[in-house]
Design a protein around this nucleic acid. Structure first.
Lengths: 346, 346
DNA sequence: GTAGGAATTGGAAGCGCTTCCAATTGACCA
DNA sequence: TGGTCAATTGGAAGCGCTTCCAATTCCTAC
């Protein structure tokens, strides 16, 4: 019937060494002569051997469990797309690696949240943890996890946390810069920007990059007006309504996320404006809504799934190297500006 | 430190039987006296024992793998929301059960698709398979999988496939009926309906139910006009544009999915109509877009994640009972009509 | 040369579970 | 009462891997 998958013993026999040695090689352990290592690797390739993760975890006494922590916020950003995207990416990566993921939700205002985290770590005996915003900027939480100790990767961490543990994310400042470039290339010189909620790391960085590009282009300070929204569709509607109906209205309106940009589009329509002729609109994130509006929205693709997948991979890489903590450092995942009709015309 | 999790041997010791017997009990195997079974179960509860899935799969020689098959369609419905929802639901259920999921994409027009399926089954040695539309109505494909033999659950299967294997989904006809009821309750008597692509099972059933409700309400045939769209936002725009600008336009416009309804909303705005005063609009699915439009869209929540989660659970239940095929039969997952401002007014 | 220590390798004991097979028990019939 | 067969129970061998520990080999330094 179906040929059985080769086992570690098959590899051992094929390369004439003991099972132990093969184990050392595939876990890149020490104390193997380079030539033996090479020989074993050749056997692995020849037999198309893949370790059986189930057996590995069982023998190693590991749970092979990674926990992803999301913030549960009663009101705030309707970010289920963001969160499910992260979860899906992480889950796929785990499936690929043969390990498992548990997703937990904790309230960012729960006074017991630190206790809960600690309890989670000891009870679940997970091999690693992933924190999504806004927890990825909660120093006390990070400290707690690191002290457990438990390997930790943060998604879109703030600068302070970036120096404490590994983090992955999109380079928001660069994304802001790139989108500004696109807007300037379209000839706009009076630009309005609707920022996200105060203190939001990514939103802040996007604006920083956006500003820098405009400054570098030599445009005067007053070319850019910045308003504050809160990432919701409704805030996009009201803020844009306001911005677009005052004197000296901008020729381009950029929003810190797609939901607000969708709201801005609506307000522009209501004011009888044509897009992008009367006002160009752009957002960030590339959520599904950006294609289900009219005209299709220019935006910056944020690789949510890749981000969480990398987080999982980095934890596993670290573990495979026998380390029990990740080196601090930010890993940027490539973004992409997607110019669509809302800034391009027909 | 952390107390170790109890093993099967702990349970055996606690209830004074052999490990084998405990194994029989937890796998509800035959040949255990009721009193012994009860005693073991009591020990399981007392020790809070949970089987170690890794060990179970390893010993049982099973891959513990379920494969989810999606159709990859170059053009067609931009249904990534639907597909990721299914995947996420299935992935979560698998995580819960300690098994793994692989997602594969196959083209519905690939002439080799049947071969590929068979090869997948033998190579991956999966313990079960889940088919999403439109494969869930592809009799030949279903036959092929069943003959492998491989346990199979179909998502939103058509009537013929429903008699071949197990399927789960929303009762689309009932959903159509319920939405029609809501529309009629709002007093509408001239209704237009934008159907989905021809041959689409769910779309068809939604309309069937919708029609039935209207007929049962005793409304004349001509109260309902039906047009055909293809599920895309753009088709919603154009068809609605057409419907809303002709004589005797409807007071309510229902679309077979949210994307088309979003398009309809846009066309209504363009024509200077107020919603829902001039025309009420409703959709199906409760995708994220339904809340990121103005006004928020009345829709029917389709429990995508629950559907795939149930599919996974049913496969595992079947396996646990030692059977190797699922009994044919449709399992309906509860839907919910979500009345929002697009039909309710302010 | 040779002792001593480091670097390499192999042996063997499990990890927690299923399952084959043998042993025991019970029930039924002649 | 003895024999037969089915129902129940237990023993033990692995599943494919890691890891502790002992054995072997290879270099040094003296």
């Amino acid at each position: 019937m179906t040929k059985k998958r080769p086992t570690i013993d098959d590899v051992a026999a094929h390369s004439g060494v003991a099972r132990t040695t093969v184990s050392r090689v595939i876990n890149n352990g020490p104390n193997v002569r380079p030539e033996v290592r090479a020989r074993v690797m050749r056997s692995v390739a020849a037999l198309d051997y893949h370790v059986n993760t189930q057996a590995r975890l069982l023998a190693g006494g590991s749970t092979g469990l990674i926990v992803l922590i999301h913030a549960f916020e009663l009101d705030a950003e309707p970010n289920s797309y963001y969160h499910s995207g992260l979860e899906l990416g992480a889950l796929r990566a785990c499936a690929e690696l043969g390990i498992s993921l548990h997703t937990r939700t904790i309230s960012p205002v729960d006074p017991d949240r630190y206790e809960k985290i600690s309890e989670l770590i000891t009870r679940l005996r997970c091999v690693g943890m992933i924190l999504s915003p806004p927890f990825s900027d909660d120093e006390a939480m990070v400290r707690r996890i690191l002290d457990a100790p438990c390997p930790l990767v943060c998604i879109s961490a703030g600068p302070r946390v970036q120096s404490m543990t590994a983090s992955v994310g999109m380079d928001d400042a660069a994304a802001g810069y790139a989108l500004a470039q696109h807007i300037l290339n379209q000839g706009h010189r009076r630009i309005a920007y609707i920022d996200g909620p105060e203190g939001h790391i990514s939103a802040g960085q996007r604006l920083v990059g956006f500003r820098r590009c405009i400054a570098e282009a030599g445009l005067p300070e007053e070319s850019l007006t910045v308003e504050r929204g809160n990432f919701t569709f409704r805030s996009g509607i009201t803020v844009a309504q306001d911005v677009l109906s005052r004197d000296g209205r901008p020729s381009a309106l950029v929003c810190a996320n797609d939901d607000m940009a969708a709201g801005a589009l609506l307000s522009a329509h209501r004011l009888g404006m044509n897009i992008p002729e009367d006002v160009a609109v752009a957002g960030f994130d590339d959520t599904p809504v950006s294609e289900i509006v009219w005209p299709p929205l220019t935006t910056v693709h944020q690789p949510i799934r890749r981000m969480s997948a990398r987080a999982v991979e980095r934890i596993v890489e670290t573990l495979n190297q026998g380390q029990d903590a990740l080196a601090p450092g930010f890993e940027a995942i490539a973004f992409e500006v997607l110019p669509r009709a809302s800034t391009l015309g027909t």
